[in-house]
Amino acid sequence: MGKDSKLILDPLADNNPITIQVLGICSALAITAELEASIVMSISVLFVLGIGNVVISLMRNIIPSKIRIIVQLIVVATLVIIVDLVLKAFAYELSKTLSVFVGLIITNCIIMGRFEAFALGNGPWRSFLDGIGNALGYGVILIIVGFFRELLGSGTLLGFPVLGDPIEKTGLYAIGYENNGFMLLSPMALIVVGIIIWIQRSRNKALIED
């Protein structure tokens, strides 16, 4: 039990896929201008990585190692097509906002990285836990970045105005607060992730690179 729970808990902090393993950055940055998009993206990755890890782990003894990358890509691509179709059916607006980034889950390095590093050498149950753990670690960072970018950028959370109305000048806006539209632009995502890395590493000195 102790070992299994480690599989889920480790990637949440000390072995986080984004801030420590440096995997899956692309989508983490591009779609985090809104909290809702970040949450949906995290759930999609959770689904793809959890199921994909199990599938690869079940097939690990029959995949010839020379063509394993193509096999892995096909498995991921199939799962991503499912996610894409589900999103188009139930959340069409959102799937328009995410545009090509749903497709880019295929080349999300977290997924290939976990297949290579874990699922090819471990049983289905442990691979499943590893997939869930890493996807949660990825989701945590996405949600933190999305939270701050939406809150500071447009003063809303999940579309609800939490800081008051900027046009009617209520809430915080009454005392002269302004939304920082810059937070919605792409460069700020990089800087927010940079700051998260900074905070994490100054709290845990063992992670510092030299």
Partner: peptide, 9 residues
């Protein structure tokens, strides 16, 4: 704490 990855971001 910012060395390496952080500053690159």
């Amino acid at each position: 704490a910012l060395r390496g990855l952080g500053i690159t971001f």
